[in-house]
């Protein structure tokens, strides 16, 4: 579990996971195109995410595609979120999102 936290500690790696959450199954080239990082940096970060099992891969021909693997994150949530807390946590997260979206709208 410690390599999961280590992998998640980096902002660039979190953005790579965000990118896969938005669109799953991207190649290295696709990911590098949309990131303010060199292709080498993206490759290095993806390797760290893969070894922490936060990214799984599949080959399509010679192309390696990257997928967000939420299983280790689910295990972290299960470890610390109790049986009846789920709904309350969800409600709080929804509330936070709503408040923050309406704040952005007011600013706009």
């Amino acid at each position: 579990m410690s390599d999961v936290f280590r992998a998640l500690a980096d902002e660039s790696r979190r953005s790579l996971l965000d990118a896969l959450f938005a669109r799953n199954g991207q190649s290295l080239s696709e990911m590098a195109e949309n990131m303010p990082m060199s292709r080498q940096a993206v490759a290095k970060h993806l390797a760290i995410l893969e070894s922490a099992n936060l990214v799984s891969t599949a080959w399509r021909g010679r192309e390696k595609l990257h997928y967000l693997n939420p299983v280790p994150i689910g295990e972290i949530v299960r470890r610390w979120v109790g049986k009846f807390e789920d709904a309350r946590v969800d409600a709080l997260t929804d509330f936070k999102e709503q408040m923050e979206t309406s704040k952005e709208k007011r600013r706009a």
């Binding site: 799984s56 599949a58 997928y67 693997n69 939420p70 299983v71």
Partner: peptide, 10 residues
């Protein structure tokens, strides 16, 4: 076609 989801567990 590329898979939609790939889940891995050890």
């Amino acid at each position: 076609r590329a898979p939609d989801f790939v889940y891995t567990v050890f």
